[in-house]
């Protein structure tokens, strides 16, 4: 039986952002852009969507005199990600099954 995949996470860029943030404590906007190869505009829109869903927290700060946007996954985001991976497993045929 296939489980429903969270549509917010089932997008290449948003899933990339969430996977990245899951493996670090926090990351700045420039780092996420470098790792995902996304354009700044598109990344900004997707980060905003994840933030509105409560999956990530955004902190506006400064690096020296340069503004810096720090992103951090929330416990709600971790839970959603775990549920997504769990649902994903139902689509993958494992050898021992």
């Amino acid at each position: 039986m296939f489980k429903e995949l969270n549509p917010l996470l089932h997008s290449e860029l948003r899933l990339g952002i969430m996977s990245l943030l899951l493996s670090v404590e926090d990351a700045d906007f420039v780092y996420i852009r470098e790792q995902t190869g996304a354009t700044a505009g598109n990344l900004s829109v997707q980060i905003d969507k994840l933030s509105k869903a409560g999956y990530i927290e955004i902190e506006k700060t400064y690096k020296g005199k340069m503004p810096c946007t720090l992103c951090k996954i929330t416990p709600e985001g971790v839970k959603a990600f775990e549920q997504y991976v769990d649902a994903l497993k139902s689509y993958i045929p494992f050898k021992d099954e």
Binding site: S11, L15, G16, Q35, N42
Partner: peptide, 24 residues
Amino acid sequence: MEDRKINEKESLELIAQMIRNTRN
């Protein structure tokens, strides 16, 4: 990366790749 739908296999590969990129 873009805002596009991906299949289940691509999802797993993407998750693994992003985690690998940040590790250590």
